[in-house]
Simulated assay, not measured.
Amino acid sequence: MTIHAHIASLEKKHGALEEKLNDVLASPSADDTEIAYLKRMKLRIKDEMQRLKTSTRH
């Protein structure tokens, strides 16, 4: 898998997590633990995408 394909895959996962997070937040019985987990996962993916994008510039 090329770096660009990996970044595209991560962007797709990030978007799916964003949708899941929005669904959870819209629920009246939103679980704080699940919200925190989803936010951490989104941040990890975002950090990985940024790291990969930076490494392709050099």
Results as ranks from 00 to 15, higher is better:
Glu18Ala: 15
Ile45Phe: 07
Lys42Phe: 01
Asp32His: 05
Ser9Lys: 11
Glu18Met: 11
Ile3Gln: 11
Gln50Ala: 12
Gln50Arg: 12
Leu25Tyr: 03
Asp31Thr: 03
Asn22Gln: 14
Ile7Asn: 00
Asp23Gly: 14
Asp31Asn: 07
Ala26His: 10
Ile45Arg: 05
Lys53His: 07
Leu25Lys: 12
Val24Gly: 01
His4Ala: 15
Lys20Phe: 01
Tyr37Ile: 06
Lys20Arg: 14
Thr33Asp: 04
Met41Trp: 06
Arg40Leu: 03
Thr33Phe: 06
Leu21Met: 06
Arg51Asn: 09
Glu11Gly: 01
Arg51Val: 06
Leu25Gln: 12
Ile35Gly: 03
Lys53Trp: 01
His4Lys: 15
Lys39Gln: 10
Ile45Pro: 04
Leu43Ser: 13
His14Arg: 12
Ile45Cys: 05
Ser29Arg: 09
Ala30Phe: 09
Met49Pro: 07
His4Asn: 15
Asn22Trp: 11
Gln50His: 13
Lys53Phe: 09
Lys42Ala: 12
Thr33Pro: 00
Glu48Phe: 05
His4Cys: 12
Leu25Thr: 05
Ala36Val: 07
Arg40Pro: 01
Glu11Ala: 03
Lys20Leu: 10
Arg57Ile: 13
Leu17Met: 08
Gly15Glu: 02
Val24Thr: 11
Thr56Pro: 00
His58Leu: 14
Leu43Pro: 01
Arg57Gly: 14
Met49Arg: 12
Glu34Met: 10
Arg57Trp: 08
Glu18Cys: 02
Glu11Phe: 08
Tyr37Asn: 09
Val24Tyr: 05
Leu21Glu: 04
Asp23Phe: 02
Lys12Gly: 06
Lys20Thr: 09
Leu25Arg: 08
Ala5Glu: 15
Glu34Ala: 13
Glu34Trp: 04
Ala8Gln: 12
Leu10Gln: 00
Asn22Thr: 09
Ser27Tyr: 05
Arg51Trp: 13
